[in-house]
Simulated assay, not measured.
Amino acid sequence: MSRDSRERTLTSKLAEALTSSLHLSEVFSNAEDVLFQLLPADYMALCVSRPGRQGDYDWWATKMPAPFLARYSELAEDDFVRSAVVRRPNLVLRDTEMVPQRKVLERSRWYRYCRELGMPLEQVMSVLLDVKGGVHGGLTLYRERRRPFSRRDQSRLQGLTPLLTHTVRNCRMYAEVAARGQMLDAFFHHRGARCVVRASPFTEELRTPSTTALLKRWFHPSELGSSGLPTELVERLALLAARGGDGRLGWDTWARDGEVRGLADQDLRVTFTRLPERDGQRLWALEFQEIPRAIPVPEAWRQLLTKREAEVVSYVLQGWDNQLIAEHFGRARGTVKKHLQRVFDKLGMDSRKALMSRAGLMSRGPLS
């Protein structure tokens, strides 16, 4: 096999390894052998910055002593490799392009420190991977002997730089989404909610386990889009997002009569909630609630209550809590509590439970 043919084969294997996982540790483990074949070296290190934590890196290294990485942050300012590549991102540099003279390299604190560790680094080649979005990475190869990296080695790594950058970007994005998903998942599980979280009207980030079964129960397959979410809800979310989440027109809630799906004893309510931004993206939560079919407000009560008090009672009988009622009316929760207290006083009751129980008995009429 010719050298060019072997190089093409190895490059193909490397591309496969770099797309073998969305976890950088697995990717690096799968790719390191092929990288060493393409770019012979004694040591190799990949570092990737941690967003929002300047000077802090995650490391994946091959054959390097543990102290090399453990003390890197305190010696970083003396690392001539780092100071050279940060000025020329995405460009592969050899040591002869990093320091003007060999004697300058040998006098550096970094050079002496590596020799103290029993890792005499005589030649180096490195590239800063500019991932964007506040993230960058670096791939560095070292040789113990004075056998310089050739221009061919440099050209080969330069050709691989876009693929390496793409891999780091994808893995970092996945890690952030996974972490965000875990936090949201824990939050919604704590609330016991059936919920879908979207990063945009068309990109889903999280779905709590029981939500899919609920969707199948309440929607015909023809109503569901490719994501398994009803097309009508996706369209409503797109409208809300375009309006900046303004729910004053009532678009932040959606309801379905249970009789549409043969569920005569309950209705479905979907609440659209705008969550805080993350990395410039607005998150939305769609919370699904199965509401017991509303008990009507007894006519006798309507004679005793004001119009607003009767409206509050009607929502209590639908299972709404004080916060939801307050948001619906655009009032403070304390205002709703005051309305309810006046209702309790007028009807001679002391709790929501008693209110719902009495209304249920009255809706069934006298026992025969």
Rank of each mutant, 00 (worst) to 15 (best):
L224N: 05
G225T: 04
S227Y: 03
S227Q: 13
G228M: 02
P230W: 09
P230C: 10
P230V: 10
T231Q: 15
T231P: 00
E232I: 14
L233E: 04
V234G: 05
V234D: 12
R236H: 07
R236G: 01
A238G: 03
L239M: 13
L239H: 08
L239G: 06
L239Y: 04
L239R: 12
L240D: 02
A241H: 09
A241T: 07
A241Q: 07
A242N: 11
A242S: 15
G245W: 04
G245S: 06
G245A: 08
D246A: 04
G247Q: 00
R248M: 03
L249W: 10
G250P: 03
G250Y: 06
G250S: 05
W251P: 00
W251F: 13
D252Q: 12
D252W: 03
T253V: 10
T253F: 02
D257N: 07
D257A: 10
G258I: 07
G258A: 04
G258W: 02
E259Q: 11
E259C: 08
V260C: 05
V260W: 04
V260L: 15
L263V: 00
A264G: 13
A264P: 01
A264N: 12
Q266I: 01
D267W: 03
D267F: 01
D267S: 02
L268K: 02
L268S: 01
R269Y: 04
T271Y: 03
T271G: 04
T271E: 13
F272H: 04
T273M: 07
L275F: 09
P276I: 11
E277V: 02
E277W: 01
E277K: 09
E277Y: 00
R278A: 12
D279R: 14
Q281D: 09
R282D: 05
W284D: 02
W284F: 03
W284A: 00
A285I: 02
L286S: 05
E287F: 00
F288R: 07
F288Y: 12
F288V: 06
E290V: 14
E290Y: 00
P292F: 00
R293L: 11
A294H: 06
V297C: 03
V297Y: 04
E299F: 07
A300E: 15
W301P: 08
W301H: 08
W301G: 09
W301N: 06
R302E: 15
R302T: 15
Q303S: 13
Q303E: 13
L305D: 10
R308I: 10
R308S: 13
R308E: 14
R308K: 14
A310G: 14
E311H: 12
V312D: 05
V312R: 01
V313A: 13
S314R: 08
Y315W: 14
Y315T: 07
Y315K: 13
V316D: 06
V316A: 11
V316K: 09
Q318L: 11
G319Y: 11
W320P: 00
W320N: 05
D321F: 14
D321S: 13
D321L: 10
Q323R: 15
A326E: 06
E327I: 02
E327D: 15
E327F: 10
F329L: 15
F329E: 14
G330R: 09
R331C: 06
R331Q: 12
R331K: 12
A332H: 15
A332W: 11
R333S: 14
R333W: 02
G334D: 08
V336I: 15
V336G: 02
